[in-house]
């Protein structure tokens, strides 16, 4: 039994179906990437795990089904989410944004905050800054930090590097690698950039218009010719 099991997952916006019959399994301690173009359904997939869309099929974490739970309950089950547009609280300070993440994990708030500041020292320096004045890279750190404040067993990150400069992308990737390496946190990221995904993840899943096209390790997918043309640009 895998740590995260997504089975026959379909997701709907009203009558429109954005995901169709997706199966993904993620082992504990892995970094996994879901790769797809604009509109492939990457954000929908992560939103669905978080209980934010109407779904069919099942999602299990550590054997327990998340399907039908409220987002709050899913957070309490140990899922942290750094969404695509961050969804930060713009007129609240960095500190207050992080503390909202501690809403269901109040007893561990001090320890988790220390952990976040260790990972992103820049946030400690800027703890009083309101996030609407921050740069994209800083917002991504706050977003990741807020997700970590919930004390997750599974971290979902939607396009961690979109719109960021190469140096910042590198830093964010490094932070994710560190998180995974030091605490064994299981991480699922989504990416449009397959090369970046490959550099970070042990397994990749290719999503096309709501359906899973292919799954495999970086090596397996890297040798597929058709895939190379479509996603790796060579």
């Amino acid at each position: 039994m895998a740590f995260l099991e997504i089975e026959g997952l379909s997701a709907y916006y009203g009558k429109a179906r954005a995901l169709h019959n997706v199966d993904i399994a993620v082992e504990k301690g892995e970094i996994v990437a879901v790769v797809g173009a604009n509109g492939a359904g990457k954000s929908t997939l992560l939103d669905s795990i978080m209980g934010l869309t109407a779904i069919k099929g099942d999602i299990r974490l550590g054997g327990e089904s998340l399907a039908g739970l409220s987002s709050r309950a899913i957070v309490e089950q140990g899922v942290g989410y750094a969404p695509e547009r961050f969804n930060l609280f713009p007129y609240m300070s960095v500190f207050d944004n992080l503390m909202v993440g501690a809403f269901t994990a109040r007893d561990e708030a001090d320890r988790n905050l220390q952990h976040v500041f260790d990972l992103f020292p820049r946030l400690a320096e800027r703890r009083s800054q309101e996030t609407y004045t921050q740069s994209g890279g800083e917002r991504q750190m706050v977003s990741l930090g807020r997700a970590l404040m919930t004390g997750p067993r599974l971290l979902l990150v939607d396009e961690p590097t979109i719109g960021l400069a190469p140096k910042v992308c590198h830093d964010i990737a490094e932070s994710l690698r560190r998180l995974n390496g030091e605490t064994g946190l299981t991480i699922v990221i989504t990416e449009q950039n397959a090369n970046f995904a490959m550099s970070l993840a042990s397994h990749l899943h290719i999503l096309e218009t709501g359906e899973l096209k292919m799954s495999g390790t970086a090596d397996e997918l890297g040798s597929d010719e058709e895939l190379n043309k479509a996603y790796f640009g060579h």
Partner: peptide, 9 residues
């Protein structure tokens, strides 16, 4: 949405 994914109902 930001509140919901932080565990706030």
């Amino acid at each position: 949405k930001g509140a919901a994914i932080s565990g706030v109902d």
